[in-house]
């Protein structure tokens, strides 16, 4: 554990909680892609199956359980409790275009051809692109609520901090995981355009809106 890793995990946790609180407090999931949230629930479910097979640390177990629990709670709020506010007409990204190729790639490029390892690899690849339906929704509506942009910022920062964590681990522990690193780089790159808008607009007190 190093500072980048811990800060990354906390940023990830902050993102998840910001989103849950936003939906709960405003009683609305307008502007939020339910599809991205389903993908994240799928990511956590397939990645953390090792909860059942191996124990790493209390921290590790606790965070995994919280991430999974929050992911399903978010999906529940969007598709059940506040279904009436869900922006289904704009949330039209075709997730099969992500899940099918990512599933195929997980079968082809993995560390070990075993069920748990393939599912873990699938989750890493899927996480790297799971935000696309959300970014697609924002590009369609042309705007995002400020609280939604804080959520996206924390989520992007999380993976960027993991990149520093991997550099740290490579130098000090000789550890590297090529699958996680490549997917993490892809994931971080997807947020770059958003980071730019966040810094130039949201941090200056303006609402995030895209030119028509």
């Amino acid at each position: 554990m190093n500072i980048f890793r811990l800060a990354g995990d906390l940023s990830h946790l902050a993102a998840i909680i910001i989103l849950l609180l936003k939906i709960w407090k405003t009683r609305s999931c307008a502007g939020i892609s339910g599809k991205s949230q389903i993908l994240f629930a799928l990511v956590f479910t397939t990645r953390y199956l090792d909860l059942l097979t191996s124990f790493i640390s209390l921290y590790n177990t606790f965070m995994k359980v919280v991430y999974i629990g929050c992911a399903y709670a978010t999906v529940y709020l969007i598709y059940m409790k506040f279904k009436a506010t869900y922006d289904g007409n704009h949330d039209t990204f075709r997730v099969e275009f992500l899940v099918v190729p990512v599933g195929g790639l997980a079968f082809l490029v993995n560390h070990d051809f075993s069920p748990l390892e393939i599912l873990w690899t699938f989750s890493i690849y899927l996480e790297s692109v799971a935000i696309l339906p959300q970014l697609f929704l924002i590009s369609k509506t042309g705007e995002a609520e400020t609280i939604t942009t804080h959520y996206l910022f924390c989520l992007g920062v999380y993976r960027a901090l993991y990149l520093f964590n991997w550099i740290w681990r490579f130098y000090f522990e000789g550890f590297f995981d090529m699958i996680a690193i490549v997917a993490g780089v892809v994931q971080t790159i997807l947020y770059c355009d958003f980071f730019y808008l966040y810094v130039t607009k949201v941090l200056k007190g303006k609402k995030l809106s895209l030119p028509a």
Binding site: R5, D9, H12, R47, D50, S54, I56, S57, N60, M63, K64, Y67, H111, D112, E117, W120, Y162, N165, F175, F176, D177, M178, A180
Partner: peptide
């Protein structure tokens, strides 16, 4: 090569 059995990262 990486360790594939224990995943300590989240």
């Amino acid at each position: 090569e990486t360790e594939t059995t224990e995943k300590d990262e989240l």
